[in-house]
Structures are given as structure tokens and as C-alpha cells.
């Protein structure tokens, strides 16, 4: 399972990077979304999969899965939500102001250096 997940994570990250390198703003945002999904899966896979019951003491199981990666991911999920929302608004404001969503045209020019 871990090997399979590693491949899925690799695919997620590869496509995320590909999207982020493209010129269209929306594709870049979608790319960051995929990137965070990949990262979350990576963290949980690193903690080992299905090694016990859910990390609730109420389960009274002999073994629990690793709770720490889950806590980290929970934090990451919420932050990535905030960041994605920020990106979205940034993108649409930039589009409104500049009238383009092409990253090449948004290049900082000499006069602004």
C-alpha cells in the first residue's frame, strides 16, 4: 500500500508542478491545491498506514495509528484552505486590475525595479 501511495503522491506532485509552471493563473491555483493534497498524503503515508485503530482512546484497541501526522495534517489542511482562498482572490483582483491572466504579461518590468 505504501508503495502504491508513493506512486500516487508522485503523480500528484508531478502534475501540481506542471500546472504551477504553466502560464495561466487559474491553472497555477489548481496546481497549488493539488500540491497540498500530495503533501498531506505524503505525511500520512510516512507515518505508516493502517497499523492499528483510529487514534481515539475510546476504541480501546491494542494499537493505534500514529496520531502525530494526523495532527500535523489537520493544521496543514486549514492553512492550505486559507492560502488557496488568498490565491484565488489575489488572482481575480490581479485579473481585474491588469486585464490579463497570463503570467508572462505580468512580468515585473525594468521601470518598477
Amino acid at each position: 500500500m505504501e508503495i502504491l501511495m508513493s506512486l500516487v503522491i508522485g503523480a500528484l506532485l508531478a502534475s501540481a508542478v506542471y500546472l504551477m509552471l504553466s502560464k495561466s493563473l487559474l491553472r497555477i491555483i489548481i496546481g497549488t491545491g493539488l500540491l497540498s493534497h500530495g503533501a498531506h498524503l505524503l505525511i500520512i503515508t510516512m507515518g505508516g498506514l493502517k497499523r492499528g485503530a483510529a487514534p481515539l482512546l475510546g476504541e480501546e484497541a491494542a494499537a493505534y495509528v500514529d496520531p502525530l501526522p494526523q495532527a500535523l495534517i489537520l493544521t496543514a489542511i486549514v492553512i492550505s484552505f486559507g492560502v488557496t482562498a488568498f490565491f484565488l482572490v489575489l488572482a481575480y483582483r490581479a485579473y481585474q486590475e491588469l486585464g490579463t491572466d497570463n503570467m508572462d504579461e505580468m512580468r515585473g518590468n525594468e521601470a518598477n525595479d
Binding site: I3, S6, G10, A14, Y18, L21, S22, L42
Partner: peptide, 21 residues
């Protein structure tokens, strides 16, 4: 170029994940 870079990143992450496991 983009495809190469992104495939590279994906492959690296996969390799890293497998060896970390």
C-alpha cells in the same frame, strides 16, 4: 521543459517516500 521538471519532482518525491518508508 515543464514536463521534464515536473516528472523529475514527482519521481524524486516518490523515491524519497519509498526510501523513507
Amino acid at each position: 521543459g515543464n514536463v521534464l521538471v515536473s516528472l523529475g519532482v514527482g519521481a524524486m518525491v516518490t523515491l524519497m517516500a519509498i526510501s523513507a518508508h
